[in-house]
Amino acid sequence: MRSGNPRDTDLWEWCCGFYPGSHPGECSGGTAATFDQARADFEAAWRLFLANRTEADFQAWRDHKAWTAEKYRRFDRGERMPHDWRPGQ
């Protein structure tokens, strides 16, 4: 549910996509007056988005997620990330 918007605008907003693993122009989003309409619009956009994804796209996202998690674990311990660290190490 969107907040801080005028009352005469759509209450619900959705965004579809992920990065890395896609280009910014491939992500989409919109607004809707009801949750059910926002959900239906999102599901239609997600089906289209998935049709253009490869396993490599999902792996790029998983690798980035793992790298970010490790970075914050190390920062919490006062360590730096090795410049050559890769997910799975």
Rank of each mutant, 00 (worst) to 15 (best):
W14C: 14
W14L: 15
G21K: 08
R7H: 10
D36A: 07
Y19C: 08
F35A: 11
Y19I: 09
C15F: 12
S28N: 04
S22Y: 05
S22C: 12
A33R: 11
T9M: 12
G25T: 14
S28Q: 09
G29M: 11
R39C: 11
G25P: 15
Q37E: 15
T34H: 00
G17E: 13
G4C: 00
G29A: 09
E26M: 12
E13R: 01
E13I: 10
F18Q: 12
D10L: 03
C27V: 05
C15P: 15
A32P: 03
L11W: 02
D10S: 02
D10V: 05
D8P: 01
F18K: 10
D10I: 00
F18Y: 13
T9I: 09
N5I: 00
W12P: 03
P6D: 05
S28P: 01
E26T: 10
T31M: 14
C16S: 07
F18C: 08
W14G: 11
A38E: 12
A38R: 04
S28G: 04
P20K: 05
R7Q: 12
R2Y: 04
N5L: 00
Q37L: 10
D10Y: 01
P6E: 03
M1K: 03
S28C: 06
A33G: 06
G21T: 08
T31H: 15
G25H: 07
P20M: 10
M1Q: 05
L11V: 03
G30H: 07
G4V: 04
L11Q: 04
M1N: 02
W12F: 15
A33W: 10
S22T: 08
P24C: 07
L11K: 02
F35I: 11
R2W: 04
A33Q: 08
P20L: 11
C15Y: 15
D36W: 01
C15G: 13
C16N: 09
R39T: 09
T9N: 05
G17D: 12
T34M: 06
Y19T: 11
T34D: 06
E26D: 14
H23W: 10
W14P: 02
D36L: 06
R7N: 11
G29F: 08
